[in-house]
Design a protein around this nucleic acid. Sequence first.
DNA 1: CGCCAGGTTAGAG
DNA 2: CTCTAACATGGC
Length: 296
Amino acid sequence: MIMKAQFTIPVPLEFNFELCLEFLRRSPREVLHRLDGDVVRKLVRIGHSEILFELRSGDKCLEVVVLHESPTASDLLHLKTYIGEWFDLATDLKPFYLLASRDKLLKDLAIKYYGYRIVGQPDLFESMVWAILGQQINLQFAYTLKQRFVEHFGSKLLFEGTDYYLFPKPETVALLTDDHLLPLQFSRQKSKYTVLIAEAFATNALSRSALEGMHFNEAKEKLMKIKGVGNWTANYALMKTFRYPDAFPLEDVGIHNAIRILKKMDRKPTLEEVKKIFKKYKGWEAYATLYLWKSL
DNA sequence: CGCCAGGTTAGAG
DNA sequence: CTCTAACATGGC
């Protein structure tokens, strides 16, 4: 008989798992994790291992159960790190809440959604492709595209009657053409950009480890060298993968709409107005963005 | 049918 | 540097 490996991860006081679950639940088409009530299941590739795990809220902690195989001690350590990154558990939100308490725009939101954290995408390739898919289309359709993409080109693990998917590997995607992607209803643009990004990763011209430790602007410029990656996409990926606190997609229509509604404006704010608002959140732009998005 | 969507590029001025 | 058209298709 195999004993299930399990462990707990302590969480900060300023952490609300339920709010993060709301984010994870936002599309029924999400295929990179599964929700069963308040329990999340996800398959991750860590090093050479594939680990399916289950996550639920415990007493001042997250409870993790590994569902298949017998993970090594190293696997468990990496998984613990992964989950910490996924929910941004290392960030101390107190300074952000202090800033927010002094600002009319976010004051109420910070109270209402206290403990809500940026649910990240530790995989940079996934993060960038997801950003490309989300460009200039509504989120529902972006999820449809992602579902088709992952189900076609990702790998899966069948466990207790449910398929758990891994995001496609760059080496796989680098070999795709319009013939593969247009039938999934990718635009020619999205198809081209997706493959270009995959090539950059597959050839190691770009990698998470190469960007690690770079300053924000240096990393951003590196990403923007890839065709299809503009300011919005680069900031989005840096926010979701590396958690640069000052990364935020300035041009994002969601941010603009949130500001318009909260300030009861009859038009969207200009980019200059958005910049001015975010000046108050210097060093916390990513979290200001998260709470604005949440307000929608 | 019309308008908008978690934008980017290329080209013109 | 700023402005604009084209891209391309679903959701509402």
